[in-house]
């Protein structure tokens, strides 16, 4: 992206426009970052100082004491929630990306009967929001007595039609047919070619699909809310939500919710920032081809 940007800056813009633009940017930066800054500062305070000191600046730095309180609370149920979240979201997104990539690749690279039908059904699936499926899934799982299990949240989370749609676009764009033909002539089987050749070419795209899938699962709140009643199976979002509903009865939970919220978003924020270029590339390919 940095290749064509400098050309544009070369033309001098009036000072007024530039100042105005920077002002908008500065105000928006405050809007987007101050709440997170507040969370970080709040998480570092003891509960007395939380209400009595400046909400946007540090008092005594008690972050680590607060974290160890959080980890100790109710036999470390918070850590369990974090682990669950990693399994639900990371696990489902990883496996789901592989499945979506395989299906999208087949849609892009092979002609077979029912291909159009499959693609259209999957594409309609993109317009069916995941939350609309939560209740029907609950009814189905209760038919086989499988609600309130790890699998009742994990298995439905594997399916991501949007990933198939993206994978089809990316496979068409980045895997040349000549290369597949060459691999065939060399005697490589179709499946081997996919894993050894195609996935490498599609790798940046696969990271994008993974990120989309990850966020979709991470944000799907209704499914675990409806499906799970055993708190040891909760993802961290559901766990913190239940604590937050009890703050009025158990005031000490408020501090734990704030520290927990900070801890639960920190790894994600870091990962998102590191992987940002994949978002940009992928979104570009998805929206404009």
């Amino acid at each position: 992206m940095s290749t064509h940007a400098p050309e544009k800056t070369r033309i001098k813009e009036p000072l007024l426009s530039r100042t105005g633009a920077m002002l908008v940017m500065a105000v928006c930066t405050l809007y987007f970052l101050v709440p997170i800054w507040w969370l970080f500062v709040g998480a570092s305070k003891s509960s007395d100082q939380f209400t009595s000191t400046n909400p946007l600046w540090f008092a005594d730095f008690d972050l680590f004491a607060n974290i160890s309180d959080l980890f100790a609370y109710r036999d470390g149920v918070f850590l369990r929630w974090m682990l669950n979240s990693i399994l639900y979201t990371g696990g489902a997104a990883l496996l789901g990306t592989v499945l979506a990539a395989m299906c999208g690749y087949a849609l892009a690279k092979y002609r077979f009967r029912g291909r159009e039908l499959l693609f259209n059904v999957v594409l309609s699936g993109v317009l069916v929001p995941a939350t609309a499926l939560a209740l029907p899934l609950f009814l189905l799982f209760s038919k086989v007595d499988a609600t309130n299990t790890f699998w009742s949240v994990f298995l439905p989370s594997l399916v991501n039609p949007f990933g198939v749609y993206l994978a089809r676009i990316y496979a068409t764009a980045s895997v040349p047919d000549e290369l597949l033909e060459a691999a065939r002539i060399d005697g490589s089987g179709e499946i081997r070619t996919f894993f050894k050749v195609a996935t490498r070419l599609m790798f940046p795209a696969l990271v994008t699909i993974f990120l989309f899938h990850f966020v979709a699962v991470w944000n799907n709140f209704l499914l675990p809310l409806i499906m799970l009643s055993d708190e040891r199976l909760f993802p961290v979002t559901l766990g913190l939500y239940t604590w937050n509903t009890q703050v009025n009865q158990i005031p000490e939970l408020r501090g734990l919710v704030i520290v927990g919220a900070l801890l639960s978003i920190t790894p994600l924020v870091i990962a998102f920032l590191l992987l940002q270029r994949f978002w940009r590339n992928g979104l570009g390919a998805g929206a404009v081809k």
């Binding site: 928006c28 987007f32 978003i265 998102f272």
Partner: peptide, 11 residues
Amino acid sequence: FFVPYAIPGVI
């Protein structure tokens, strides 16, 4: 500007 997107709706 992108940071808030990493934060799930509940949080």
